[in-house]
Design a protein around this nucleic acid. Structure first.
Lengths: 126, 126
DNA sequence: TCTAAAATGAGAATGGATTATCATGAATCG
DNA sequence: CGATTCATGATAATCCATTCTCATTTTAGA
């Protein structure tokens, strides 16, 4: 799974171009044109391998399943559009999370997901 | 589904006593002793109805599936223990989320999930 | 108490996401 | 340029959560 294949390049390229986390099905859609015949099994194989190798990061959105994004970005969170379903990256992070943590609990990490309408959908699906 | 049954009372009682969101399987475990013979199908039927009636609220934790909690509480978030898997309620909410939202996006709601070790697991599973 | 309608329990069925299988095609390396 | 080994694609299989089915039990109300 470490050979340089057309499929792998197409998948990585799709993730880089999108610049947002993608679901396996979205990866197939976006990478398909770059690599005709690309199959969903290969997408699953590649993202799994990518996560193991540390090239990709797994993103879980409540109620929206599992997505993948290129790893190595700085700390950020996500915004899911309730109209088109796309998930976007949002920079920054509010402080004060430590303060929410109950006494005696150890805070190790956190996830923040914002919901609403993306720029494209603000007009059309308001 | 609006009759007062032993099963329904046991399920609501379990959710109230736990004072934290429960997965269907957890509800079955906790309510089972209160209502011998309770089946998982009934748990699913009751939580579904409860959400429709507004008595319960659905909580989705990334990677942990769907949980249910009693509705009507004030705004709060959740903490999932990576050791025991239980999900707890945490009060409060950091401000500044609006500031994270990209220009042109409409922020409607948000979810914050903290991860780490709960009080019980801090010692044993450190 | 008696009856009709609704809820339950057990297990089968479903749906969707992910993984396995295996013959074929492609990448690597001498 | 081979030969070898690995990756791929199609689809079957698996997994897990949730829902359905239906005979039986229970509730609510006359």
């Amino acid at each position: 799974m470490n050979r340089q294949t057309r499929q792998r390049e197409a998948i990585e390229s799709a993730l880089i171009r999108a610049d947002r986390p993608l679901r396996p099905a979205e990866i197939l859609e976006l990478a398909g044109p770059l690599c005709p015949g690309l199959g969903i099994a290969t997408v699953y194989r590649q993202v799994k391998q990518g996560v193991e190798d540390g090239r990709l990061r797994l993103v879980e959105i409540p109620g929206s399943g599992t997505l993948y994004e290129v790893a190595g970005k700085h700390h950020h969170h996500h915004f899911e559009c309730r109209s088109c379903g796309r998930v976007f990256e949002v920079d920054g992070c509010p402080g004060g999370l430590k303060g929410l943590t109950p006494d005696g609990f150890l805070l190790e990490s956190h996830e923040i997901v914002l919901y609403g309408l993306c720029r494209d959908c603000c007009g059309s699906a308001a």
